[in-house]
């Protein structure tokens, strides 16, 4: 297994944590119960799972612009992921990460990040260097 994945330079601080992975898309408004810190959309592959303090690994963003504020609001209550990794982020998620000071990276050189990383993998995310390291 590779010890390190290269990606595009991202946003936010270097963080360490455990991955929660799904080949699914993401919107804080559409998919989350932000009070409980759970995925609440029944059709989402992570339905019922807690996102608190994990490194989310997902395909891409979907839906509206609310997530930009919501990441900040979630972080302020400390019920938020440590980082989000995408195959392709959209502008809203990047803007939200910038305000929330949350780590976010995308565009992995080796292909589909939802296949390269498995739930439970221990990772260090380095947005400034454009890399994710397996611990």
């Amino acid at each position: 297994m590779k010890k390190e994945l290269k990606c595009h330079i991202g946003i936010g601080p270097k963080v360490e944590g455990v991955a929660l992975v799904a080949d699914d898309n993401f919107s804080a408004r559409y998919d989350l119960d932000r009070i409980k810190g759970l995925f609440s959309r029944p059709q989402h592959q992570l339905f019922g799972k807690s996102y608190k303090d994990v490194i989310l690994v997902l395909n891409t963003a979907k839906g509206g612009v609310a997530t930009a504020w919501m990441l900040y609001e979630m972080t302020s209550r400390k019920i938020a992921p440590k980082a989000i990794l995408f195959n392709k982020a959209n502008t809203i998620l990047a803007q939200g990460a910038a305000l929330a000071e949350m780590a976010m990276v995308d565009r992995f050189e080796d292909g589909d990040v939802t296949k390269l990383i498995k739930t439970g993998d221990h990772l260090i995310v380095c947005p400034d260097d454009g890399k994710v390291v397996f611990c």
Binding site: R29, G64, A66, W69, M70, Y72, E73, S76, R77, L99
Partner: peptide, 15 residues
């Protein structure tokens, strides 16, 4: 600007 109070929360309003 999109900014409803549910999305903003106390933190976004204070910001």
């Amino acid at each position: 600007m999109m900014a409803d109070p549910e999305s903003l929360g106390e933190a976004g309003i204070a910001f």
